[in-house]
Design a protein around this nucleic acid. Structure first.
Lengths: 342, 342
DNA sequence: CTGTTAGCGCTTTCAA
DNA sequence: TTGAAAGCGCTAACAG
């Protein structure tokens, strides 16, 4: 029996169950369950005895079993492109704190590195039977979206307002943001633009509106460099290099994200270009460092904390059935933060 | 019946089960299960019929039910202080990819913002019955550690080598890293130090070794500024300000992390201090921007990708029972990256 | 290759 | 305030 020398995972350890606690405390299983989940329903005397038993044998509830019968997992899954994506940090933080208060647990998933299709992703998520979903990354596949709608699962799409939301939405118009970026640069007098942009769907909405606004005002877009996600500072540097190789006469660079702007600034500095006089630079996101680099970065800020709080609030309302699907929509707006680079 | 007008979450939608698929495909439930989990065991003809039925009614397995009976959740929980902590990005990415290949799903948890105790945190994690745990943040509470050991749950502690690991470990000695940082600065001729440091346990190991090495060499540590986590660039700026207020004669600042060093650099630049001549600066982590700021930052690099790959490998070996608890230890080391700031 | 039976650990429902 | 019975959706173990 060679096989039996391999300890199968199932036998890892003698699992302590609710029944073990019940036996020890001399009550029925359901009473133990109530001590844990509805403390008010049990007399203090019994409850104390049960708690003592729980501590003594180190019982930890099995949520898989509980979810199976109660049809509530107390699990909320959050999908983000990658944890490297700093704009979502405050959103996730507030979301997580607000949900924890209501005893929901967050499961963070990165969608960006996986090769699976959106449908596979959605199925993977659904297989855990979450009570709700927060998507910080848009689902482009229609049948993936439909799968969520069919289940009537509470979903909050965060960071971007959409015309046909799956369910609740909290964010702002990326097209409006892109247009506002262009308008700011135009107002500052820049006319000959290079664009360094992340190659992802949401950034694309900003890009199109930004370009359109620039062109409509009679300005020129000499080159648009698309860089792969996840982006890094290095891409910003090489982006500017590439643009200058072809067009030494640009007077401004607009970037899809502050990280790229930081790279552009570094390269400009290395080449001795004066910012903002010879070259205007604008980013997006108002990341932590933006105010501290030299010159401080002109950028766009959205209130990530508020998005997180509202996302939590919306999700709870939907989970508790207080509002119907698609009834919750909030535009949190954004603001241009003018600093030293444009 | 006012209550009944509130749609209870349980009735959200008619859930499709394995039995529904079985009925439609005219096979038994277990055959459907096998098509999904052990495709090799079913004839292609039957499998095809089953797959068609699955697609037709949009069946998604309920992992809670499966886990309950199989005692395997195919879930790995990763604990990190906060997703803002950039040093872990590559580790999580590689971990996630390697585990996904073996059909394990990652659940990312942030420990840093929660007010719950370590014991509560561990219980929360255990209640999901993960097949394994990856801790990028050290558990200081002994009974929290003991709880994991008692269950014989596969655990990998990542990013720091420990004397008494819970189970497997992959990382490097933070004390050695701290000492190496000090040694580098001493070799560069700096003697009067200010330290700007994150107030967390792991950084503390580096701090103690760094200070000890500095002092042993006869150098002076004029001030140590401890800043709260999560750290930001701004703390680096105010840290340098605070040190200079008391000690205008420092000649170097060592930071617990590149973000703080970036702030120190920004403040030094604002004050017209020449780096590295008048002020040497050293960071830790070799974050994305480190090579691109001006002057490029001298720092310490650990191979986060390798840590992630090894963590995945170790975890899988432990889950499959191929090795026992505590048998897997790997020191991945670190390296000093000398650039322009010291 | 396919099916039958039993039961994972818990909470719902109903009754006392 | 407590308990008994039933069963959530699935897979292990065995049988055919």
């Amino acid at each position: 029996m060679l096989e039996s020398s391999l300890k199968p995972p199932a036998l890892r350890s003698a699992p302590v169950t609710l029944d073990d606690v019940a036996r020890l405390a001399q009550v029925s299983a359901i009473t133990v369950s109530r001590v844990i989940n509805r403390p008010g329903m049990v007399s203090e005397r019994t409850a104390k005895r049960v708690r003592k038993a729980i501590d003594k044998i180190g019982y930890v509830p099995n949520l898989a079993a509980g979810s199976l019968v109660s049809q509530r997992s107390r699990l909320v899954i959050v999908v983000m492109p990658s944890i490297a994506n700093h704009v979502f940090v405050e959103t996730i933080r507030h979301l997580s704190q607000a949900l924890a208060k209501e005893r929901y647990q967050l499961m963070l998933c990165q969608s960006g590195y996986s090769e699976q299709s959106e449908i596979e992703l959605v199925d993977t998520l659904l297989s855990r039977r979450p009570d709700g979903l927060v998507l910080t990354t848009a689902l482009s596949n229609e049948s993936a979206r439909q799968r969520l709608i069919n289940r009537d699962l509470p979903v909050v799409e965060a960071w971007e307002l959409k015309d046909q939301p799956i369910d609740a939405v909290v964010g702002f118009s990326h097209a409006a943001a892109g247009a506002a970026m262009a308008a700011h640069m135009l107002a500052k007098g820049y006319r000959r633009f290079g664009l360094v942009w992340s190659n992802d769907a949401r950034a694309a909405s900003r890009l199109h509106a930004c370009r359109a606004t620039l062109l409509a005002a009679g300005a020129t877009v000499l080159e648009t460099v698309l860089v792969e996600v996840p982006v890094s500072v290095g891409y910003g540097r090489s982006g500017l290099t590439q643009i200058l190789d072809h067009h030494s006469d640009i007077d401004a660079v607009i970037c899809s994200i502050d990280l790229l702007a930081q790279g552009v600034l570094a390269e400009a500095q290395a080449r001795g270009l004066r910012v903002p006089e010879q070259l205007g630079v604008m980013g997006f996101g108002d990341l932590d460092f933006a105010a501290h680099i030299q010159p401080p970065l002109t950028t766009v800020r959205a209130d990530g904390a508020r998005i997180g709080q509202l996302a939590a609030q919306f999700l709870l309302q939907r989970i508790e059935g207080r509002v119907g699907r698609g009834e919750l929509v909030e535009d949190v707006g954004f603001e241009i933060v003018e600093r030293g680079t444009a």
